[in-house]
Every structure is written in C-alpha cells, then in structure tokens.
Write a protein that binds this DNA or RNA. Structure first.
Lengths: 226, 226
DNA sequence: TCGATTATCGTCATGGTGACGAGAAAAAAG
DNA sequence: CTTTTTTCTCGTCACCATGACGATAATCGA
C-alpha cells in the first residue's frame, strides 16, 4: 500500500497574564520560510516521540520550564495542503497556560522570543488562526473549568484570580460577587491560612487551586455570543 | 534540514441515537494489521487534501452522505510512536453526529460496517480511547451548544430532542421542565407550525434547529463530575 | 491620626430551575 | 360511542444562584 508522506510539527500557543493583559509567547523566525516574521514557537516531532512529549519538550526549550501551576492541552491540528511552502506539513497545536514567570525566554532556532499582547499580529504560516483558536479556547475554558488557576502562582489571592478572568475575557467583574463565587464553588480554591503582606489595602487571604476539574456551577460571562 | 517522515490518517467517531441508545459506526477491518477486528472508520489523507476534506470524504464513503442535519468537527490527534505497527502514523480524529438515517452502510476496505451501542469494545489500534474521547466530547457539548439537534432530522419534536439528551447522558429528564428550557432558550429551536400525526398521545408540535451556536443559559446535567 | 485602598461580609430583588399538578388532544380499548 | 390511556403543553410554587450594591475590616501612606 502506498500513501502520501507528511512532516509533523507541534506549535505552541503559550499564554500568560502580564499587567492585566493577556500575552502570547512569540518567536521571531531565524530560518526560511518567513524569516524574520513572528510565529508561534514549535518544531518537528522527533522520530520516536509522542505528540504530547514533543509539545512539552518545545515548551521547555522556549520557556525554561513549565513547572507546577501550568497547564498543557492539545488544541487541534492544522493541515491545509499549502500551509507550508516546504511541503506537506501537518501541525498539532498545543495550548499552554502559565503564570507570569519573570522568564524573558530565548529560543534555539529562533532569533528572538517575546511576550506580546494578543491582538492583530501578522504571524507566519497560519499561526494567526491557531493563536485565535487558542485564545478562544482559553476564554471558553475559564467558564467551565478551574483553569484560571493555571495562570496564577501556587498561592494567590482571590483578586489575582479575578484579574485573570478580567484579562482573558476583557471584561470587568464585580469583586464582591466574584469573591463569593470563587470561594463557594466546591473544589475551585482552598485557603492556605496565609495572607499577603506589604501590599496596599487590607491583607488578602491566600488560596491554592482546589481538586475540581470542572466548575459546577460554571462562571459564565455575559456576552458568550460566539 | 532533515526531519522524520509520517503517514497521516483521519479516523471518524460517528455517533447517532437509535432506539434511545447512543450508537457508534464501526467497521470490521479487511486488512492487516488487526484484520477482522472492529475499528473506527477512517483512512489515509491524500496528497493534496485538507484534513477536514479527508474526514468529509471518509464520512461520505462510509455512510453515503452526511447531508443536512449532521455535524462534523475535529476531535483531536493521536500519535503515540507505537500506535500502528506499520510505522509512524499520526491520526486526526473527527467527531460526526448524525440523525438516525436508515443507512446500513458499507465500507470500501472494510469487511463490514455496523452501528454498535457505545460501551466496552476491544477496538483496533487506540480506537477505544478515541471513541471514549468522542463520546465525552459529545456529552459535554450537549450542555453548552445546540448540537443535540444534529442527532435529529430537520423537523423534530421536543420529546425527540429530550430523548437525545437522555440517550447521550444516560439520564432521565423531566419532560415538562425540559420542554420549558428547550422552547425558552433563545435560538435553540424554532416552531415550524406543523405537528405530528398518527402517533399515540396528543400530537406534538414540530420544531427545527434555531440559529444559536451557543446555548445561553446552558442545559447542565446533574453529575458533571468528570 | 486620618484618609485611601482593598478585602470581606451582608442584604435584597430578580430570575432560572426542580418538583409537581392539571388540562388538552389524540389513539386505543371497551 | 364512551372511557381509558398516552403524551404534550401550560401553570404553580419553593428554592437557590446571581447581580447590584451597602457596610465594615484591616492595612498603608501622608
């Protein structure tokens, strides 16, 4: 039996929240094609490597670590025949959510890496589409899963968690109602007993992520009119 | 630059509701490897073919048509190095939801095709896992999207729609409360003006799918403890 | 000491939801 | 033809989650 031959890559949509805004990790390409243009970090899957392992490896190469507090899931695959001028390349995209580590990051076959606010970039290949899909996935998953905690360090305040929602959704939330929802939704967050110090205003209690994998009831945004 | 070489396939999780139970379309393999075992329908992606086009083509080959009323979406990709003894094969799985067409179906490189109730089959390759992922995706999407209508013919009753939920979730729903939810959730269903005839009991009004892509508010199941 | 700032708790009206009753409209049974 | 059965459709009611917002607590900076 004969069948067509493909190359398979993984591309990463790595998101974090910096200064109240959603940022994506992008690299400036150091090779043709699209030399010099911004693109999602990624690379070829090795000969004896699982897809998820390849994604984790690339994430490690680009960020230094995905440590605890992060999240990695498959986003989807993209395989239009003309998406890569080098030939038939199918890419499996992964979505990573990370706390705002002070990691400026540096790539291997990339000239430069940077956190850029999500918006209208002219990325290489079909990466604009992949990034948009990743952002939409993140927005949606914040409603039904405790994944917002993946953007936070191991211990965080309710206000920090709320600012994640506000940054990802681009929408203001009432601090008092959000506090009630976050603390009463079973398995979302657990108090650690500690509190913040040295910040302006009343000290806030610190929480860690709970053991729930699904939020019930969910935290719905107003205009989920997608 | 050198990189590993892959074959890429599409595999289909085709679901329908028959006699109040969720069924999957399976084929008996007519080729090695796993000759004679049940498997998901699928095949190789052609040299100049988009992934979605390949999925649609396979769906047409196996079912005769996916016509109106159906739904097709990408489910995910599976690429463990040892998942296919022939070599490095990455498969892109698609999820299809179809009304219960009286299509017994027949395959091309498959000995036989049949609708089997979802459950514990010993499918070929990693297809047990893919099928389970597809069923879970369907269960989840019924909550937040009007996708239950994809299991129904163009015109359907509220009771038929409710039976879809009951079959997919494996859970009984109160007919009166479900009727209220389905008819008041904006964009879910639209009355056609016609009614059923010849069925036992009071005639039921017929509806068609509305134009909403997301249900707001969602229809939540009780034990979403996944 | 005194605002400014932020966290946390409470109150209240509204609306969605589950649990159920009751009538409407047909087929099936007698 | 009348009665029973079946299923659809509309109402009612209590409860609870939620949005809007007031009030208090606890810290920092002036």
């Amino acid at each position: 039996m004969s069948y067509p031959v493909f190359a398979v890559t993984v591309d990463l949509v790595v998101l974090t929240v910096r200064e109240g805004e959603l940022h994506a990790l992008l690299v400036q390409r150091g090779l043709e094609p699209h030399l010099g243009r911004w693109a999602l970090p990624g690379g070829f899957v090795l000969a004896d490597e699982d897809l998820t392992a390849a994604a984790r490896r690339e994430l490690g190469e680009e960020t230094g670590l995905d440590g605890p507090g992060g999240h990695l899931e498959q986003l989807g695959s993209y395989g239009a025949p003309d998406r890569d001028p080098r030939g038939r390349v199918v890419t499996v995209a992964y979505l990573a959510l990370l706390p705002d580590l002070p990691t400026p990051t540096a790539g291997t076959d990339a000239a430069e890496a940077a956190w850029l606010p999500v918006g209208r970039h002219g990325l290489a290949f079909d990466h604009d589409r992949i990034l948009a899909d990743g952002v939409e996935r993140a927005r949606s998953k914040l409603e039904y899963t405790p994944l917002a905690t993946a953007f936070c360090p191991p211990e965080f305040t309710i206000a920090a968690l709320r600012q994640v929602y506000e940054a990802v959704w681009g929408e203001q939330l009432d601090p008092r109602n959000f506090h009630r929802k976050a603390t009463t939704t079973p398995g979302f967050v657990e108090p650690t007993g500690r509190s913040t110090e040295g910040e302006p205003g009343r000290p806030a209690r610190l929480y860690r992520r709970g053991d729930a994998t699904l939020l019930n009831p969910p935290i719905l945004r107003r205009n989920s009119s997608s």
